[in-house]
């Protein structure tokens, strides 16, 4: 006897892509395709990811080149105009997608791993471990993520790496809380008792038997968090607390052009459009995933 076939046990929101027979995963895809908002989100996000990856080959001009007239309006040559130093805005914004997506995905990956470990440990071991971890999580929970990121940047300083660290740490509590809550209920399931009586190690039970059943809420939380991480980076960079001034960041591009917005509106409008459309696509996807996976643990408010 090897593994307990716990796949069939239905815990609320239990879902694993590879658990699904082919027709169910096709059904899931069909479900997503019916949701117009989700399709919009998926298409826009794919375009953004591809253009961020291929930025050096697809940008119309060198984003640093100050070759053009200053603050030229929209034209065929410069679809989004040029900035106060005569640089092509579209090219700069395409490069900006790299930073936004990099920060969005990397921070969520980091906070997901740390948060899940803390959440599983707290829920599974209970007692003093739970108390220590939850005291910290509760403390962090009392503050909005963005404010925590600002506090952390105040201490560790600015720059791309520090921004990633600050936002990652700020998001840990969201994951830890959800995972802990789920683990507390799953811990009571019979297959966990069975695994224990077979003498499996704690680590094996936690990561092979319990964790897979918490995947659905984690997926949804991760999606929501990516959009808030992108907003967070843009906000920090806009305030001058984010990436260095020579990095392409939508928030920074917007901040740089603030003094010129009354004479060159496109400098104020387009960088924000890029941020909004990116975040909107991810939110649409997240909402569709929440419905599809029937997740209630994650609020649509990822403050």
């Amino acid at each position: 006897m090897t593994d307990i076939p716990h796949n069939q046990t239905t815990t609320a929101g239990a879902f694993r892509a590879d658990d699904l027979p082919p027709d169910r995963s096709r059904e899931a895809l069909r479900y997503l395709l019916r949701d117009k908002k989700a399709v919009f989100g998926a298409v826009v996000l794919s375009v953004l990811i591809v253009s961020a990856l291929l930025a050096p080959w697809i940008v119309p001009y060198d984003p640093e080149a100050m070759d053009f007239g200053m603050m030229e309006g929209i034209s065929w040559a410069h679809p989004l105009g040029t900035d106060d130093l005569g640089r092509d805005l579209l090219s700069r914004l395409i490069y900006g997608a790299r930073i936004s997506l990099l920060v969005g995905f990397s921070t969520v990956a980091i906070s997901l791993v740390i948060g899940v470990i803390l959440g599983v440990a707290a829920g599974y071991f209970g007692g003093i471990t739970d108390m220590v971890i939850m005291r910290y999580i509760d403390l962090q929970w009392a503050f909005p993520n963005f404010i925590i990121a600002v506090y952390l940047v105040a201490v560790i300083g600015q720059g791309l790496l520090n921004v990633i660290i600050a936002i990652s740490l700020a998001f840990i509590d969201d994951f830890a809380r959800i995972v802990r809550g789920m683990v507390l209920s799953i811990r009571e399931e019979q297959y966990v008792d069975a695994a224990k009586s077979l003498g499996y190690s704690d680590a094996r039970i936690m990561f092979r038997h319990i964790l897979p059943n918490t995947v659905a809420p984690i997926i949804v939380q991760a999606t929501v968090s990516v959009s808030y991480a992108i907003l967070g980076e843009a906000g920090l960079s806009f305030l001058g607390l984010g990436v260095d001034s020579d990095t392409f960041s939508w928030g920074l591009i917007l901040a740089d052009s603030r003094s010129f917005i009354s004479s060159a509106w496109w400098l104020g409008v387009f960088p924000g459009c890029f941020i909004m459309i990116t975040v909107l696509s991810i939110n649409f996807l997240g909402d569709a995933l929440r419905d599809m996976l029937d997740v209630r643990e994650v609020k649509s408010v990822g403050v």
Partner: peptide
């Protein structure tokens, strides 16, 4: 999805 600082601008 709209950044508040952008709306402000």
């Amino acid at each position: 999805s709209m950044p508040d600082f952008w709306l402000a601008i």
